[in-house]
């Protein structure tokens, strides 16, 4: 009896035998990666050939010799055969300023308003909380006309201020910080009070360091959100010097009779991809940490 039990035991802990069904999830994942990756690969291939090859419609699946040329042309805004465009260098600078301003601005404003809502008792506190909460239902697309009106009234059209300020207020980030702040034990606040830390010191010395991972995770998300803005920059900027890279690339596509320098556009697209990829790659560890655990 006991011998047979012993015989059975190892079979249970041995690695599960290979089952054909196990392949299915992998197949789905691989398919997903291919679906996602192929267009990107085509962008890369497109950026390595000349405009003529692409225009003829028989783009090979292997890289051509012109990657560096195309990147250089896109970067400096020269060398296109037909359409003149703003140099990608300028567009990327604009995008970078906008994305950074939006990410930093959103975090700064949200963390301060969350601090007020989570830690202080003041009249109409819940009213303010709900006012912030309700703006979740009013994204840029919904309020775009009045927002434009206001920005135009302040004379901020075609400026960095006009590009970023209307996008800075963020209910999502405020709520995220509020939820985090609510998990901070009351005793920690009281210990700080007894240690003699006022509200500002507590915020700077205790709360801000504790929010590090949340801030980093939000930064990644908000940077990409800012970088990918399309509708608002399209509306609020008019001069080529203020184009962001997302707008600029679409502007490079010729209309009507004009032919399109697809190789330059693909090179510009490649360049436009780099900053968000870099941010995610560099801050991935923090992103996961910030979304998964809070160090307490």
């Amino acid at each position: 009896m006991s011998a047979s039990l012993l015989d059975q035991a190892p079979a249970k802990v041995a690695p599960a035998r290979f089952r054909p069904l196990d392949l299915l999830p992998h197949a789905v994942l691989v398919l997903g990666v291919l679906l996602l990756g192929f267009p990107l690969y085509m962008v890369f291939i497109g950026a390595t050939w000349d405009a003529g090859t692409i225009a003829r419609g028989n783009l090979p699946l292997t890289p051509g010799p012109l990657l560096l040329d195309n990147l250089a042309h896109a970067w400096t805004g020269t060398g296109g055969e037909r359409v003149m465009h703003t140099p990608v260098r300028v567009m990327m600078w604009n995008s970078l300023v906008m994305a950074l301003a939006i990410a930093v601005g959103k975090i700064a404003i949200s963390i301060i308003s969350a601090y007020a809502i989570a830690f202080f008792r003041f009249p109409l506190r819940m009213v303010f909380f709900w006012m912030i909460f309700i703006t979740l239902m009013l994204p840029v697309e919904v309020r775009i006309v009045p927002t434009y009106e206001v920005v135009a009234g302040f004379g901020m059209v075609d400026s960095y201020a006009g590009l970023t300020i209307p996008l800075i207020a963020s209910a999502t980030a405020t709520l995220l910080f509020r939820q985090f702040f609510l998990t901070v034990p009351d005793e920690l606040v009281e210990a700080a009070k007894i240690d003699g830390a006022g509200p500002l010191r507590f915020f700077l010395d205790v709360l801000l360091p504790l929010s590090r991972t949340n801030i980093a995770a939000l930064f990644v998300i908000l940077f990409i959100y800012g970088w990918n803005q399309y509708l608002w920059p399209l509306l609020v900027t008019s001069s080529g010097d203020m184009d962001t890279v997302v707008i600029g690339v679409t502007k490079m596509i010729g209309t009507g009779e004009a032919a399109t320098d697809w190789n330059i556009i693909m090179a510009a697209t490649l360049l436009a991809l780099l900053p968000p990829v870099a941010v995610v790659a560099l801050m991935q560890r923090w992103l996961v940490k910030g979304l998964v655990d809070s160090e307490k």
Binding site: P185, E187, L188, E190, A191, I194, D205, L210, E295, K296
Partner: peptide
């Protein structure tokens, strides 16, 4: 000076 039940140390 106060000693709290859950210690209330600054975790960072």
């Amino acid at each position: 000076a106060m000693v709290f039940q859950n210690y209330a140390l600054y975790p960072h």
